[in-house]
Design a protein around this nucleic acid. Structure first.
Lengths: 199, 199
DNA sequence: TGACTGACTAGATTCGTAATCTGGTCAACA
DNA sequence: TGTTGACCAGATTACGAATCTAGTCAGTCA
């Protein structure tokens, strides 16, 4: 019952759940843990959430939202679209390197989360980040710094996969090339590929 | 003892092991299975190989070599480097879609192979395919169809990650965009990124 | 003599099952 | 009417016994 009872019950539940999930992972956190820490009865959790999985997804969504917010600032900032993409990749590596919860959910690596839940959580993240990219590309096309003959949806999907690969390689450390070199090269390749042909 | 005893013992062992691994996976295939199928005593396997893992890696290497051979023909063929890259991705998807052994080893998805072995087998494949890409890029630079300011090693690593992501997305089917659209977009982005600036 | 074998072993894995745990429910409660 | 926590079925764990198997090496044979 350490979480204060000042805020709304569902916020308390999320906060409590987040703390527990971060410490123990999805499997080893019990619904009893969450509710007693939040200071509610067990049944109350089911007034606000469909299931334990739903609580987990809500936590991931909240955490992702914070990441997307800081990423949005960056993407609205100055610099060419390729430059901002590079910054986004760097930010993602930093953020995901620190946020074990998002990391585990997206890559499913550790024993913190199991199959189904991890897949759903990964979907949430993929969708969120992809729409971030879509927005950036659309802005770039309007500004004239991105080729207009690119299909924004497809390009966002491909860029996500590319960026994801680099982030994964950086975080898992299974790349043979230094991160900086990879980012520079990626920027060279993707950068010129996004520029309008007229240039 | 169904494998003919005409060929050399180590070739017989590899052939027998490959058949067993394909059918049952690494874990459920026993050394006894392999040697009795190859018509040798159990101890003989250890005259030719360090361990069961080593046999598995040899099988993966042999299978990869066949893939690399058909890929090499393609990469030596006509077309711009980006075009040939696209063909390579398509070939990879086709090949890995059929070859459960390579697929399982690279993506570690199914229960056919477990952690350590899968990682080593994946390394073998990464190394092989990456040097394929390195060669293609070097040729492209000599031919003038690839920018010479690209670091070939880094570009090969990045292209591998990019291609890998697309192949994985295609095989796992977790992409929101059709494969063809993804390939076309990838080609647009990567293609223009590889072309010499003079163009 | 040296290539080859297969019985053997230690350690891992599987199996059976009893004990425990936990997500989700719902009758009782305030 | 909103909240609770005792309760339940099914999942998970614990654990000792039985089984399996990667790797070895003393012995066989050509």
């Amino acid at each position: 019952m350490s979480t204060e009872s000042t805020s709304a019950p569902d916020a308390r539940l999320i906060a409590s759940a987040e703390a527990q999930f971060r410490r123990f992972g999805f499997k080893r956190t019990t619904v009893d843990d969450i509710t007693s820490e939040a200071g509610t009865g067990k049944g109350s959790l089911y007034l606000h959430f469909e299931s334990k999985q739903a609580v987990y997804l809500a936590v991931v969504e909240a955490s992702l939202e914070r990441f997307v917010n800081s990423a949005s600032q960056l993407l609205d900032g100055p610099g060419s679209v390729p430059e901002r993409l590079r910054s986004l990749v760097e930010l993602t590596i930093r953020h995901y390197g620190e946020d074990e919860l998002l990391h585990a959910s997206l890559f499913g690596k550790t024993g913190l989360v199991d199959g189904d839940v991890a897949r759903m959580a990964a979907d949430v993240q993929r969708t969120g980040i992809r729409s971030l990219l879509r927005a950036l590309l659309a802005i770039g096309q309007r500004e004239g710094s991105v080729r207009t003959d690119l299909d924004v949806d497809a390009a966002a999907a491909v860029l996500f996969e590319i960026g994801w690969a680099v982030v994964r390689a950086a975080l898992e450390g299974d790349s043979q090339v230094s991160l900086d070199q990879a980012l520079t090269t990626l920027n060279q390749i993707v950068g010129l590929g996004l520029l309008p042909r007229s240039q």
